[in-house]
Design a protein around this nucleic acid. Structure first.
Lengths: 362, 362
DNA sequence: AAAAATAGTGTGTACGTACACATTTCCAAA
DNA sequence: TTTGGAAATGTGTACGTACACACTATTTTT
């Protein structure tokens, strides 16, 4: 034994001349303690710092915590499928500590689904909730219920600051847009014309894409103080003909320097369109390591991908809540992920990394 | 509570029709188990994944493991100081699991110091060793001692393949060089002249820098199939006048497109020289988030930093060994880190990450 | 005054694992 | 057949905490 033993509940009892039961009652203010005993125990506690053994505690009180994840349906979108992979990894890690995780999926297409899904989530009587607040309006009212029911929750992917969430896990989206701007301007000279594409997203509901676009525009404006154009195109559905027409016009502009796509799935779409128009050499910046994006990046159609690390966001979200429940450990209010730049030459190193194991003790 | 409790040692015993003692002996190959019992238990183990309860384990066995880290003196080099920060974080994480970590530092200037430091490390009777095999020659003989004493060890930062280390944690340096090439060529056209700088490094001893240079040259050769020049300059000391002269010549070449520095501390040096020559606009690619590098990146003197993530390398190195000791878990033979690209626009997101990293420590 | 309720306290068991020790089994030697 | 002894197996206790429960001592009710 190299370390001096920890001063435990037994030692307190001996020092105070009472039983461990009494010490336990004092420590947890369960009442039923005489004033004289209370005083004796408190005296001992003041002289010796007591740090409960967390292993013994979690082992002894065989509590089971339930965490519920509220996120968009993974089958609808490969991005959310990646998130889901992270959740599934977390399940395996935490099950041994008595934490069970279940998922409730809402549809991005039928926003009205959110309410019923949220209700379903609450029926599971979760001890904490991890939430991707994609649908701003629909989510806001849900927060009130959570506050009422005193259910702690964390947000990921998109931040909504005006809540009292335990923590937000994700990236700074304005900076993400700026980064996209930087990547698209690298080595460029002369005048600049750029496109920002939002594909199949409802801009009313998704502030996050607006933040990205703002960052992008701000950077471009700084880089080309005078002569630049940024056009924003929004595809509302896969059969949106006005979008096609506008995009066709944009692509035929001789001074078009690059295109920025604001979402991961949109990046696939944009790459396929560019390739179809024989414009694969136009600089294209998008998001995330979706399978198709990887292929387009290797081909050179996509030049840069910004990695949002959806799996890890999910993992850290769960970690935050589980640590809160088990160890009563306070979480960082904001856990910002680095904005990772992926090119054809470091792509391989990220793909290999995918399978990595991350330990629970963080 | 109908909780899906973990499948524990007791459950295994019941399923196999033996006692927990027998299961314990099988799990830890303590021997004294009949073949028939062994078979029965193993059958159960194959059908059900058994993951021991960490809490119960550390509580039950009051074992204390000691890991010793052998790395260059952090005071000598800011890079190794970052590594050391990672080690210190790991200490706090693993102390709860009965793992204590101590460090032994050798000097990069007096290579002979390695031997005595290594001996000091062994005197601590470590259960495992984490080693940065920077000094190739000096390290090789140490491996023999480790093998003799049956001390498991892992390597990080630099790989030496011909050993039976438990694991290597670090980056693929050839790819790192290729990535540098890609970053330096971005948006460049015409002919290309480039410089590769090795600053204050003994190339005989450090194969890793050679690997980076090879990757760099290979990429450039692919990008400029015909017209390109890559000059390699090696500064042996801070007063190396031939280096200064050659570098001055290189900087005056009109077609100089960029400079690649192979080490993190060298990047600082190169940036200061370029700035001094008024050549801050030449594209400069280097390594790591040293304080000065951060400043130069913000100023625009440095264009790209490749992040080797020294802290995390250290953390994962310790994780690997600790998992090996506690869980008897086999480590990945090679744990390759992603090659992270840092620019002025995503820098902040990495620094913020850093800050949280250190605040968790305290 | 006896019975009952209440406050205060201590004891015992459980949690899942590790490990020491006790017990049983089995086979070979006496 | 008995016995010695090793091999195989089971049992018990410890780890530090939580919590149910049992037990006193004191007070209140009938």
């Amino acid at each position: 034994m190299a370390n001096p033993k920890n001063f435990g509940i037994k030692d307190i009892a001996r020092a105070a001349g009472v039983s461990v039961g009494t010490v336990d009652r004092v420590l947890h203010n369960r009442g039923k303690v005489s004033e004289i005993a209370l005083k004796k125990v408190n005296e001992v506690l003041q002289k010796n710092e007591y740090r409960p053994n967390l292993f013994a505690r979690t082992l002894g009180s065989n509590k089971n915590y339930k965490i519920v994840v509220l996120q968009p349906e993974p089958a609808d979108d490969p991005y959310w499928s990646l998130v889901n992979q992270g959740i599934e990894q977390s399940m395996k890690e935490w099950i041994h500590y008595g934490v069970t995780i279940s998922c409730c999926y809402f549809s991005l297409h039928r926003k009205s689904s959110f309410e019923s899904v949220a209700a379903k989530a609450l029926k599971l009587k979760p001890d904490a909730i991890l939430l991707a607040p994609i649908l701003y309006v629909e989510t806001i009212s849900f927060f009130r219920v959570l506050k009422e029911k005193q259910i702690p929750f964390a947000l990921f992917n998109t931040n909504i600051t005006e809540t009292d969430a335990l923590s937000f896990i994700g990236q700074d989206l304005y900076s993400s847009g700026r980064l996209a701007g930087e990547l698209i301007c690298l080595g460029q000279t002369g005048t600049g014309r750029f496109g920002v594409l939002h594909v199949d997203e409802d801009l009313n509901d998704s502030i996050h894409l607006v933040q990205k676009e703002k960052g992008f525009r701000d950077f471009i404006a700084g880089f080309y103080p005078f002569r630049h154009t940024v056009e924003s195109l929004n595809r509302t559905s896969s059969t949106d003909s006005s979008f096609r027409k506008k995009l066709g016009q944009l692509l035929s502009q001789p001074d078009l320097k690059g295109i920025f796509v604001s979402s991961s799935r949109g990046t696939e779409t944009a790459a396929s369109i560019l390739k179809g128009h024989g414009k694969g050499n136009i600089r294209l910046v998008g998001y995330d390591l979706l399978k198709k994006n990887i292929v387009y990046l290797k081909e050179g159609v996509i030049d840069f991908l910004i990695h949002q690390n959806p799996q890890q966001q999910a993992v850290e979200g769960i970690n935050c809540l589980a640590n809160h429940l088990i160890f009563k450990r306070e979480a960082k209010r904001v856990n910002l992920f680095p904005l990772e730049v992926i090119t054809s030459q470091n792509l391989e190193s990220y793909i290999q990394d995918q399978a990595e194991f991350t330990s629970v003790n963080s």
